[in-house]
Nucleic acid binder design. Structure first.
Length: 242
DNA sequence: CTGGGGAAGGGGCCC
DNA sequence: CGGGCCCCTTCCCCA
């Protein structure tokens, strides 16, 4: 479904990623995407995220801005995993007699067809080996220990502000918080004099420079700069079927 | 009431 | 596996 949307008309996150300093792209670079957003979203047609990191870098921009160094989103993923390759390996005995061709890497059961193996994995092995990590502080569950540990930090709040004592789950949250004390605003709007302590807030601000807002009510076609404003609008009754 | 800014939370990805 | 950084989203407050 995502292929239906011309993502490239939006600000590419790659314009920001990987820059050593929070350098904001020059107006002439941003202008075509900031001032002329062609597409608006409705809540029913919204992609998971209009500025999703699945976006392709805007073609034609300098590579220094589209950043291919620190993060490679160029779609180098292989169509088939190593495990799949192993599963597809033909199993033959030392005498060359072909056995069942496809073997489960987990329980070693063999199947004559790949689809048979896939079915087995989906219904049996994968389900059995799928682990669940539960938080001891709440009822959340995660499929990986790392994700759980990350979540637990939201309970333990190990990062404490030395100035006011407020605690945060992650260092960069604390870092952002400290800016509220120092007044540091490293993210400047290229179109006005405003500056922001948070990059996301700058991104939201950039929408206010756009003539056409990208979040559109599917009923009255009114557009909004933020999804939250669209939600507010819809909840206020515009989209109620009379 | 609406729109915008400030602050913060949480998931995903890369190194 | 953990840290760092990315992103989007949400909540609150104010003009």
């Amino acid at each position: 479904m995502f292929s239906l949307f011309p993502f490239s008309v939006f600000i590419s996150p790659y314009l920001y990623k990987g820059l050593p300093l929070p350098v904001i792209p020059q107006p002439e670079i941003l202008s075509s995407v900031v001032y002329n957003p062609i597409t608006v979203w409705t809540t029913s047609s919204l992609p998971l995220s209009p500025l999703s990191s699945d976006l392709s870098p805007i073609s034609g921009y300098p590579s220094s801005l589209s950043d291919t160094s620190s993060k490679d989103h160029s779609g180098s993923e292989s169509p088939r995993s190593d495990e799949d390759e192993r599963m597809l390996t033909k199993l033959t005995d030392p005498h060359g007699v072909e056995a069942e061709k496809f073997q489960c890497s987990l329980c070693k059961k063999s199947y004559s067809t790949y689809s048979g193996l896939l079915k087995h994995k989906q219904l049996h092995c994968d389900a059995q080996t799928r682990k669940s990590f539960s938080c001891k502080y709440c009822e959340k569950e995660y499929v990986s220990l790392g994700a759980l540990k990350m979540h637990i930090r939201t309970h333990t709040l190990p990062c404490v502000c030395k100035i006011c004592g407020k605690a945060f789950s992650r260092p960069w949250l604390l870092q952002g918080h400290i800016r509220t004390h120092t007044g540091e605003k490293p993210f400047s709007c290229p179109h006005c004099s405003r500056a922001f302590a948070d990059r996301s807030n700058l991104r939201a601000h950039l929408q206010t420079h756009s003539d056409v807002k990208k979040y559109q009510c599917k009923n009255c076609s009114k557009t909004f700069s933020r999804m939250s404003l669209l939600h507010k609008h819809e909840e206020s009754g515009c989209c109620v079927v009379h």
